[in-house]
Amino acid sequence: MVKDESVVVSPCIGICALDENDVCVGCYRTGLEISHWGGMDASERNEVLRLVKEREKSSYI
């Protein structure tokens, strides 16, 4: 089986609620990132995932 590197899976975990900073408490994407996800290409999605990791790390501080 060949893995399609152009497919970037959404980080959504089904807990959809934006906090006071417009960041989802489930996936750590902003409301804008969530609404634009379907129209993003793989590189844009990967950049969002990078930002998601940073937000998630800083939420534990």
Rank of each mutant, 00 (worst) to 15 (best):
S43M: 11
M40R: 09
V23K: 00
H36M: 12
V23N: 00
E44K: 02
E47R: 14
S35V: 10
M40W: 07
E47I: 09
I34P: 03
G26K: 07
G38C: 11
D41Q: 12
D41F: 07
D19F: 13
G39H: 09
H36F: 01
E47G: 13
S43T: 11
G39Q: 10
G26Y: 06
D22E: 12
A42K: 04
H36E: 06
V25S: 15
D19E: 14
E44N: 06
W37S: 03
L49P: 06
V25P: 11
H36I: 00
Y28W: 09
V25T: 15
G39L: 07
E44H: 04
D19I: 13
L32P: 05
N21L: 08
D19R: 15
W37L: 03
E20T: 12
D41Y: 08
G38Y: 11
C24Y: 00
E33V: 03
E33M: 07
G31P: 11
D41A: 12
A42C: 09
D22G: 01
R29E: 05
S35Y: 13
I34K: 08
G31D: 15
R45M: 11
V23C: 06
V48F: 08
N21R: 13
G26W: 04
R50F: 12
V48Q: 01
E47Y: 13
G39I: 01
A42H: 02
G26C: 13
V25W: 12
D22S: 05
Y28R: 04
W37P: 03
